[in-house]
Design a binder for these strands. Structure first.
Lengths: 168, 168
DNA sequence: TTGACAGGTTCCAATATAGAACTTAGATTC
DNA sequence: GAATCTAAGTTCTATATTGGAACCTGTCAA
């Protein structure tokens, strides 16, 4: 199977990876969440080639993660949409895992202060219903409506965007 | 910058992506969390080429995410280590985003029952200290011990977290 | 002892990436 | 009002990675 067909599966992981599963994309998003908005700033900060960066930004705009907005004629900013901001838990989870398992004994490169309570926080994944921490051993995955629908429809479709208006 | 150098940055996102940031890797992990353990099963379920699958499994074993264990002479299973199990929040966050933004109006392909409370849950990222939901707007990233250590050690420079000054 | 099976390797063509140079249009400086 | 600068890309070439298929190599089962 080619990578471009992965997103057509009835699986939220596959569909999400089709959008952000590329090697550089999460690093672009990391910097976007840190406030970066312009092509050259991304390019300098990431040291990714301009070619690849242009491609990734375009894909993310097409997917609805970024909004491309002119701040002058012919000059653009890439700003996270609500859909893009929704990726923050993914970034936090990734950061949390890196902090736990890949810190080389030096502690976290970044720490996070929670505005709400003022404390230094670590991200924690909990059950929406009871608020308890969730690990792989605590959940039972079961077929949901999207799976049955796609089975009976029997086909794969292009993403129908609910387009987000702006953010931040 | 070449991709292979990404993991040497003092950034937990970069380090984590160096391990799992590849196109197929999260799909391998998805299936591993669903119970898949053997080479041919991964290959059939994912439709990834054997060559790429072999490479990804090897990398994940080297990184400590999988343990390779003989269940017969010359036949192996790939089982998640504790480090690997620690990636479950990442998978949940990815699933949650896909369910919210990419469901094509059909609802989630999979739903999750929480053993603890018996309810159908959605994953929720909260502050470890106060338990409140966390979004991008609720946290202030600050330099942590791992960043200072790597700066004084003079290793690969982390991207400057400069705030883009903006228009509008 | 013959064949199937699991777990890979090897081969080649197609695609993607890294690095650098080039383009373009409006803004700034002289 | 021409020359320069700047941001945001494109284009180019060499190298690396993928996709697809065939091949190899030990066990196991009949």
């Amino acid at each position: 199977m080619k990578w471009d067909d992965v997103g057509s599966q009835a699986c939220s992981v596959a569909r999400t990876m089709a959008v952000i599963g590329d090697r550089w994309t999460m690093l672009v998003l990391r910097n976007a969440f840190m406030g970066t908005r312009r092509f050259d700033h991304f390019q300098l900060q990431l040291s990714v080639t301009r070619h690849v960066l242009a491609d990734r930004l375009k894909r993310l705009v097409d997917a609805g993660v970024f909004r491309k907005e002119a701040y002058q004629p012919n000059r653009y900013e890439y700003r996270l949409t609500e859909m893009g901001l929704g990726l923050y838990p993914v970034l936090l989870a990734i950061t949390g895992w890196g902090d736990t398992w890949l810190d080389e004994g030096r502690g976290a490169p970044l720490i996070f202060q929670h505005k709400g309570c003022g404390q230094t926080m670590t991200p924690k994944m909990v059950c929406s219903e009871c608020g308890e921490s969730v690990t792989a051993r605590d959940v039972i995955p079961m077929a949901g409506p999207g799976l049955q629908a796609s089975r009976s429809a029997g086909s794969a479709n292009p993403p129908a965007e609910k387009r987000a208006s702006d953010a931040s």
